[in-house]
Nucleic acid binder design. Structure first.
Length: 624
RNA sequence: GACCGGGUAGCUCAGUGGUAGAGCAGCGCACUUUUAAUGCGCGGGCCGCGGGUUCGAUCCCCGCCCUGGUCACCA
C-alpha cells in the first residue's frame, strides 16, 4: 500500500444503489386500519447549565474533565484534576446528595424563567456533555492528525476482502502458508483489539467475514505502530501483510503496513452480548449490521431472492416494468392509501397500494407477460406481518388462468428457495416447511366448512356459507363478530381468517373466493358468486394472492359501482372507480391470470424471521 | 384502542423508600501467538419525561413518551 502513496483523491463518489425492500401485507384485497400518528416529543441533549445551577457538582473532578479539553501529552490522554490525582470514587458519592436536590431546584427555576419552553433540539457535536469514551476517541483522532496521518483519506486499494481471504485460504495449513508467502492487502472495521505489549492482535471485519491481523512493533514502521496504538474499537483501517497461522491455528495477516481509513467516534456495543435491544437494532440498523453478523445474512438472502425471482420470470419471457407509485386514483387493492400533493399541478396524489391496474393496462397494450417488483404503501396498522411500505412482486400472464398460476407458483417458490436459501425445505419456528411441489389445494368454503364442523362438533353444510343469514348465524355460533354490511362472502372470509389461517403451515392454495370480496377477479363460468382466485398460505400467513383477471368491461364497471356503494356506506377501503381502466378493458384485454407475492413475507419464511421488521433494513418507527 | 412486559453506565443486565451495582467496553501499568486474552489499579449515571405522596423517590401513586408482545378494530 506504500504509505500515503496509495491514497489518492478525486475518485467519483459512491453511487447509492437503489434496493428493493418493504413489507408484506395482506396482498391484493385486504386492508388494515391505521393508528394515530404524528405525536411529537420534546427530546434533546441537556444544554449546559449556567454556573448558578452547577452547585457542588461543578467541583467534582468529573465535571472538570468533561469541561476541559483532553490533554494529549499525558500519554493516557486523560486530564487529571489540578491536584494530579483522580478524585476517589467514594468522594464523589459523598458529594452527590447535594447536587441531586440542586438539580431539581435548578430545573424548576429554569422552567419558570423560560416559560416552560422545551430545551432546544439536540446538538450532537457538543463536547461538554459527552462521555469520557467519546472524548478519548476524539483525542486519539487528533493525535493521528498531529502525526500527519490523513484521518479521512479518499481511497484505499484492497486486493481482497476478508471474506475472500477466508474463502481462498481458510483451508490452508500453517506450512502451506509459510511456503507460499502470500502477501495481501485488505481493509475493514476493527472489531477487537488484543494487546500484549509487543504482540498484538486485531480482528478486522469486512461486514461478512472477519480476519485476524497480527501487529508487532518490530514489523511496522514507527508511524504505523503509532497508528496502531491510537486505534479504537470500530475504526476502519487497511493493512498489508503476509498470511500465516498462529499457534492456535487462526488464519492471520502479519501486518507490515497499516493505513488509517476512518474513525469510529462513538463507542460500539460490546463484543459478547452485542446489540440486543430490538428498538435500537431497527432505529440504528448500521450498528446492528456491525455487531450482529446474522443480520447481514438475512439481507444477503433477501438480495438473492429478488435476483432469483427476476431471473425465473425473465427466463420465462416476462418483461420487468416500473409503473407509477404516485397515482391520482389509488387502485388494485382494498386498502387506505397515503395521500400527498403535487404543488405544480395542485392535485392530490396517492402513494400506490398496488400496481395491479397499471400492469393489466400493459396486457391490454400487448405485453403478454409482465412483472414488477417494487414498493406498495398502505396507510394502515403495523404488526409483526405489516409494515406501511412493503415490497410486492406482481406478474400477469396472458392466456393463462389461476390453475396455471398454481403450477407456476410452485415452480417459482421451489426455485427461489433453492437458489436463495439453499433448500426447498426450510425451518420456520417450531416447524419445517417444505416448498416441494405439489402444494396442498383446498377450496375456501371447504376449508371453512371443515374447520367449523370440527369446532362445533357437527356437520356444517356447504350451503350455510352461501346464504348471508345462515353464514352470519354460523359466525355467531363461533363467536366471530360480523357487521350488517357484510354479505355471505365477507362473512365466509372472516370465518376463514379466524378458523383456518393460522393453521396453514405447509404451503396451501386456498381457492375459489366469494365474488363479493374480489372486485377484480373473473367469476367461475358456472358460479357467478365465486371467482377464480386463490391465496397461498404458508407458515400461517398469506404469501400470495392470485386470480384469473376480470376482463369484461361491463362486469368491471358493475363491480366498481358496487365498491362505490360500499364506499358511500362508510367503507373507506372500498375500491375507487377508475374509468380509464374500464376504458382500457373496452379495448380488449386478453384472458390472463395475475398474481401478487409478498416479497418481505417470502424473505421471512426463507430466513426464519418472525417479524417483518427483521427483513426490512429500516422499518418505520415513530420518531423519537 | 385494551391489556401485559420493558426503558438504570457506551453495551448486556442486577438492584433498593435512606450516599446507585456487576460483566464487557474505556483509562493507567505489566505481558512476544491471543481469540469473550489475563492480572492489578482507576474513571464513568437527570435510574425515559413530568407531576404527586414523603423528612427523603431510581423505587410508591398519577399522567405522558418510546418500545416488545397479546388481543381488538379492519379485511
Amino acid at each position: 500500500m506504500g504509505g500515503g502513496a496509495s491514497l489518492d483523491a478525486g475518485r467519483p463518489a459512491d453511487v447509492l444503489a437503489a434496493r428493493p425492500r418493504g413489507g408484506g401485507r395482506p396482498l391484493r384485497g385486504a386492508a388494515r386500519l391505521c393508528g394515530t400518528a404524528c405525536r411529537w416529543r420534546r427530546r434533546g441533549r441537556r444544554r449546559p447549565r449556567p454556573d448558578h445551577c452547577r452547585g457542588r457538582r461543578a467541583l467534582a473532578s468529573r465535571t472538570h474533565e468533561r469541561a476541559g479539553s483532553p490533554h494529549p501529552a499525558a500519554g493516557g490522554l486523560r486530564v487529571r484534576p489540578p491536584g494530579g490525582h483522580p478524585v476517589a470514587r467514594g468522594h464523589q458519592r459523598g458529594a452527590r446528595a447535594g447536587p441531586h436536590l440542586q438539580r431539581r431546584r435548578c430545573r424548576a427555576l429554569h422552567q419558570r424563567r423560560a416559560g416552560c419552553r422545551p430545551p432546544p433540539p439536540s446538538t450532537r457535536m457538543t463536547t461538554t456533555q459527552e462521555s469520557d469514551q467519546i472524548l478519548q476517541r476524539r483525542a486519539n483522532l487528533e493525535e493521528l492528525r498531529k502525526l500527519g496521518v490523513p484521518v479521512y483519506p479518499h481511497r484505499f486499494d484492497p486486493q481482497a476482502a476478508a471474506a475472500d481471504l477466508v474463502q481462498a485460504h481458510g483451508d490452508k495449513g500453517a506450512d502451506v502458508l509459510e511456503a507460499a508467502q502470500i502477501t495481501t492487502r485488505t481493509a475493514g472495521r476493527v472489531l477487537a483489539i488484543r494487546g500484549f505489549g509487543k504482540a498484538n492482535f486485531l480482528v478486522l471485519s469486512d461486514g461478512r467475514s472477519r480476519i485476524q491481523v497480527y501487529i508487532r512493533e518490530d514489523s511496522l514502521s514507527p508511524r504505523d505502530f503509532r497508528i496502531y496504538k491510537l486505534l479504537d474499537f470500530g475504526d476502519w483501517i487497511g493493512v498489508e501483510g503476509r498470511l500465516f497461522r498462529t499457534k492456535t491455528n487462526e488464519l492471520t495477516i502479519w501486518a507490515s503496513q497499516i493505513e488509517f481509513l476512518a474513525k469510529c467516534l462513538l463507542p460500539l456495543p460490546e463484543k459478547w452480548h452485542g446489540l440486543t435491544d430490538i428498538e435500537t437494532r431497527y432505529r440504528q440498523r448500521y450498528l446492528d449490521l456491525i455487531v450482529n453478523p446474522d443480520v447481514r445474512r438475512v439481507f444477503e438472502i433477501r438480495s438473492r431472492v429478488v435476483a432469483a425471482v427476476r431471473e425465473f420470470l425473465t427466463r420465462r419471457g416476462f418483461l420487468e416494468v416500473e409503473t407509477p407509485m404516485m397515482q391520482s386514483i389509488p387502485g388494485g387493492a382494498l386498502a387506505r392509501p397515503f395521500v400527498t400533493h403535487h404543488n405544480a399541478l395542485d392535485i392530490p396524489l396517492y402513494m400506490r397500494v398496488a400496481p395491479e391496474l397499471y400492469l393489466k393496462r400493459l396486457t391490454v397494450g400487448g405485453i403478454e407477460r409482465v412483472f414488477e417488483i417494487n414498493r406498495n404503501f398502505r396507510n394502515e396498522g403495523m404488526s409483526a406481518q405489516h409494515n406501511p411500505e412493503f415490497t410486492m412482486l406482481e406478474f400477469y400472464w396472458a392466456y393463462a388462468d389461476y390453475l396455471d398460476l398454481m403450477g407456476l407458483t410452485e415452480e417459482l417458490l421451489g426455485d427461489v428457495a433453492r437458489q436463495a436459501a439453499g433448500a426447498e425445505v426450510v425451518p420456520y419456528g417450531d416447524h419445517t416447511v417444505s416448498l416441494t411441489p405439489p402444494f396442498r389445494r383446498v377450496s375456501l368454503r371447504e376449508a371453512v366448512r371443515a374447520a367449523a364442523s370440527a369446532r362445533l362438533n357437527r356437520v356444517v353444510d356447504p350451503g350455510e356459507l352461501r346464504s348471508r343469514d345462515r353464514a352470519a348465524g354460523l359466525a355467531s355460533e363461533l363467536d366471530v363478530a360480523v357487521t350488517p354490511a357484510m354479505g355471505a362472502g365477507a362473512v365466509t372470509m372472516k370465518l376463514f381468517e379466524h378458523l383456518c389461517e393460522g393453521d396453514l403451515v405447509q404451503p396451501t392454495f386456498v381457492y375459489d373466493f366469494p365474488t363479493e370480496v374480489s372486485p377484480l377477479s373473473k367469476q367461475k363460468a358456472d358460479d357467478p358468486e365465486t371467482v377464480e382466485r386463490f391465496e397461498l398460505y404458508v407458515a400461517g400467513f398469506e404469501l400470495a394472492n392470485a386470480f384469473s383477471e376480470l376482463n369484461d368491461p361491463a362486469e368491471q364497471q358493475r363491480r366498481f359501482e358496487e365498491q362505490l356503494r360500499q364506499r358511500a356506506g362508510g367503507d373507506d377501503e372500498a375500491h375507487a372507480m377508475d374509468e380509464d381502466y374500464v376504458r382500457a378493458l373496452e379495448y380488449g384485454m386478453p384472458p390472463a391470470a395475475g398474481e401478487g407475492i409478498g416479497i418481505d413475507r417470502l424473505i421471512m419464511l426463507l430466513t426464519n424471521s418472525h417479524s417483518i421488521r427483521d427483513v426490512i433494513l429500516f422499518p418505520l418507527m415513530r420518531p423519537k
